[in-house]
C-alpha cells in the first residue's frame, strides 16, 4: 500500500508544469526527459550544455529537498531482473515512441498534439495491462 497524497501530488504536478512553461518561455524547448537525456548520450550534438544543466538540477533537487526537511518515499517493489529488463524496454520504447510521460503526457498533450495524445493513451493502457498481468496473473 502507498498513502493517497492528492495535495502533494497536485503540488508536485503544478511544479512540473511550471518547469515545462519556463523551459519553453526561456529556452524554447519541450521539457521531455527522453529528449533531454537522449541529447547527452554520445555522439553529442551542439546543444548538450543546457541539457546537462537541466539534468544536474533535476538530480540535485530531491536531495536538497530532503536536507531542507522534506520527505520523499521510495520503495522498489520489483525484482532486480524486472528493473533491468524494464529499463532496457523503456529505453527502446521511448526511442521509437519519441517521448515519455513528460514529453508526450505533459508537454505534447498540453499542445493538443495528436501524436502525443495517441502515444499517451497507448503507453498508459500498456502499463496498466502489464501491471495487471505481473501482479494478478503471474502473481509476481
Amino acid at each position: 500500500m502507498t498513502e493517497f497524497t492528492p495535495w502533494a501530488s497536485l503540488s508536485g504536478g503544478v511544479l512540473i508544469g511550471i518547469a515545462a512553461i519556463l523551459l519553453m518561455a526561456l529556452h524554447g524547448r519541450v521539457a521531455g526527459m527522453t529528449g533531454i537525456l537522449s541529447g547527452v548520450i554520445p555522439p553529442l550534438g551542439t546543444d548538450w550544455k543546457w541539457r546537462v544543466a537541466f539534468l544536474a538540477g533535476a538530480i540535485a533537487a530531491p536531495p536538497i529537498y530532503l536536507l531542507l526537511g522534506g520527505n520523499v518515499s521510495f520503495n522498489v517493489p520489483v525484482s532486480m531482473v524486472a528493473l533491468i529488463i524494464g529499463g532496457l524496454i523503456v529505453g527502446v520504447g521511448v526511442f521509437f515512441g519519441s517521448g515519455c510521460t513528460s514529453g508526450h503526457g505533459v508537454c505534447g498533450m498540453a499542445r493538443l498534439s495528436p501524436r502525443s495524445i495517441a502515444a499517451t493513451c497507448v503507453f498508459m493502457i500498456a502499463t496498466f495491462i502489464t501491471v495487471f498481468i505481473t501482479r494478478h496473473i503471474l502473481g509476481l
Partner: peptide
C-alpha cells in the same frame, strides 16, 4: 509511434520507473 509507446508502457509497468 504506437509500437514504441506500447513498448515503453510494458517497461514502465515492469519496473515502475519512467525516464522523468
Amino acid at each position: 509511434l504506437i509500437a514504441g509507446s506500447a513498448t515503453f508502457g510494458v517497461g514502465w509497468g515492469l519496473a515502475g520507473f519512467c525516464p522523468g
